[in-house]
Simulated assay, not measured.
Amino acid sequence: MERPNAFDFWGPKTLIGPELKPGDPAPAFTLTTGKDTISSQQFAGKPLVISVIPSIDTGVCSKQTRRFNQEAAALGDAVNILTVSADLPFAQGRWCGAEGVDKVVMASDHLDMSFGAAYGTYVKELRIESRAVFVVDKDGIIRHVEYVPVAGHEPNYDAALAALKELL
């Protein structure tokens, strides 16, 4: 499924995949950290925030990842927070080390872009992810979705965090 003009990254771009809605089951996924493969099953049983970014080495993506890392530190073990991009795992690891980001799980979709295709964040023309935030309950049901339509804009953190706190 293609969604033309759904994301603006230096002009209109096409997103591959469905436009998920609250109430939809969260699609299963497999991602890599470079050393390990992680899957959606590892996050079952706790609320999960999935923060999706185009590239960790850009200002807005860095800010979004730092913000969710701060929230993860404040919420502790009650939730899981995952950041997904198509960056190579070594770039993600380098950035996290340099920034002191250690509370979110950072994972890459670069191998096959299957996460992006399942969650509707795969930017066809650039083979990267669009910006989005998903809040999934402990049973795997999506409770909050935000597809940010312009690459340079931040998500609505307050709305995502309010949806998350309703699940605690």
Score class of each variant (00 low, 15 high):
168 L>G: 01
49 V>K: 09
86 A>F: 07
138 K>W: 03
101 V>I: 15
90 F>Y: 14
132 A>D: 01
51 S>C: 07
80 N>H: 15
79 V>G: 02
153 H>R: 14
106 M>N: 14
9 F>C: 04
112 D>I: 04
93 G>D: 13
132 A>N: 06
19 E>G: 03
39 S>D: 08
109 D>W: 07
150 V>C: 01
135 V>W: 08
62 S>P: 00
1 M>E: 09
91 A>Q: 09
9 F>W: 11
144 H>A: 06
120 G>S: 03
112 D>F: 09
1 M>V: 09
167 L>N: 12
8 D>T: 03
158 D>Y: 00
39 S>I: 02
54 P>E: 10
158 D>Q: 00
56 I>D: 09
163 A>I: 03
156 N>A: 10
106 M>I: 14
96 C>S: 15
4 P>D: 05
141 I>G: 01
58 T>W: 10
46 K>D: 03
128 I>K: 12
151 A>W: 10
14 T>P: 03
91 A>Y: 08
162 A>K: 03
98 A>T: 00
18 P>V: 05
15 L>N: 11
168 L>P: 03
103 K>S: 09
97 G>K: 14
161 L>F: 15
140 G>Q: 12
31 L>I: 12
21 K>M: 01
9 F>S: 10
88 L>C: 10
63 K>W: 02
166 E>S: 09
160 A>Q: 04
99 E>H: 03
122 Y>Q: 13
79 V>P: 01
114 S>A: 15
117 A>V: 04
15 L>V: 10
127 R>L: 11
88 L>F: 15
2 E>P: 00
140 G>E: 13
52 V>K: 11
57 D>E: 14
30 T>W: 02
146 E>T: 05
29 F>E: 12
46 K>P: 02
128 I>E: 13
142 I>R: 01
163 A>P: 03
57 D>V: 11
96 C>D: 14
160 A>H: 04
